[in-house]
Design a protein around this nucleic acid. Structure first.
Lengths: 225, 225
DNA sequence: CTTCTACTACCAAAATTTTCATATTCTACC
DNA sequence: GGTAGAATATGAAAATTTTGGTAGTAGAAG
């Protein structure tokens, strides 16, 4: 499951991102309304944690814009004060739930799970592509019936592709999404992991183009011939 | 067995939680109706001790909502006064039993046991995995026919895994689930308990991968080769 | 007072991640 | 077609992270 955290306070944002990452969610952060909007136009998320007070575009406006666009992704609003008008405003704008700062991370997590569950009966949490399947809760990956033993980075890399369909990602993009700001390595690292992943995939009989290179642009999931 | 205690009076709640914990139940507390609802949507409990008077959503409403949702978990209602209308209202809402404050903790415990027995024939309270079985009511753990003598923390750790199938948990997550907020120790502690558990498991012939490490991600129950 | 348990610290081993040097492949242009 | 130049693949070594084991202290329980 992929979550976008939109919160301008670094301390709070980092705390949320770290906590949710520990729970094996794929988490990304945006620090103002405009860049959140940009991300949401390009990527697919399963849930948004959205602060109300934001630079450039506040959470209420962003929420309304998303709903007007027909996006029904679950939105969990964060706000500094628990006034009735705040609450009404947030829920009217289309938020699904509402949490008042300061809050316990555990409560945030519980509400996130509740939101997933609410719309959850239809959505299968298992990601698949061709004969490949990945179960995020058990961290198991199968090709047909054979289990793959992936390293953490290989696992996250594959999960990233699986969550983004057939989109092409450059090595720079992959670095941005899978590594945290503090320690971003060289692009050669991505090459190495792509290689590891391909090797392990081929060792269980997957076609070599399952992770396809698009010359000059990057990598993407490939279709069976 | 896992019990949720929903009671807004700290003194009463703490007393109940402590008493039931002493009886080896896994107990969690909620202090208003809404958060109880959230917890119930996410976690699995075997019984609810539910106060009628609650902030945000009273016990009657919560009880009715649960039953409407098709949850048939046993509910033991607590109320301040023994009026007939209270009683009728509670049982109509779907409560299984009824206790009037003030009450003796011993009586509460007796009624809980009675409720467990009532629905007991259908539900299997014994948790199992491969050749491992854990009886939460007696706190006995067996591997095949051999009994394991576990320390309390080791026991809770194993019970936690057994209740969550094959999910992967990081050490941070394990800390959050098995320790209370006040005193969360270092992650090294989890390592120590994992080790203790593995040693005792191996000493009765269990395979070493029964508690499996997923490098960089955490631990989970492992499958027999 | 003794015994058991929980917690922490430290080190060695294992696994993974990263980097670098080199070979191969691809594209565009002549 | 053939070739220069860029991009990617490959292989292996270095650096880092993660984990398992030992030991020792503090504190609670009996």
């Amino acid at each position: 499951m992929k979550i976008l955290v939109v919160e301008d306070d670094d301390l709070i944002s980092d705390a949320i991102v770290e906590y949710l990452s520990d729970q094996h969610y794929a988490v990304e952060a945006a620090y103002d309304g405009q860049s959140a909007w940009d991300l949401l136009e390009v990527f697919t998320y399963d849930l948004i944690v959205l602060d109300v007070m934001l630079p450039k575009m506040d959470g209420i406006v962003l929420c309304r814009k998303l709903r007007n666009k027909g996006m029904d992704i679950p939105i969990l609003m964060l706000t500094a004060r628990d006034t009735l008008e705040n609450k009404i405003e947030g829920l009217d704008a289309g938020a699904d739930d509402y949490l008042v700062k300061p809050f316990e991370l555990e409560e945030l997590s519980a509400r996130i799970r509740a939101l997933f569950r609410r719309g959850g009966s239809t959505t299968a949490p298992i990601l698949t592509w061709e004969k490949l399947s990945l179960n995020p809760s058990t961290c198991e990956v199968f090709y047909q019936d054979k289990e793959l033993a992936l390293s953490p980075k290989e696992y996250k890399l594959l999960e990233f592709f699986l969550r983004n369909g057939r989109r092409v990602f450059s090595r720079a993009q992959i670095l941005e999404h899978l590594w945290s700001f503090e320690q971003v390595p060289e692009e050669a690292t991505v090459k190495a992991h792509i290689r590891g992943l391909r090797q392990k995939l081929e060792s269980v009989g997957a076609p070599s183009n399952l992770i396809e290179t698009v010359y000059g642009l990057g990598y993407r999931l490939g279709e069976e011939p």
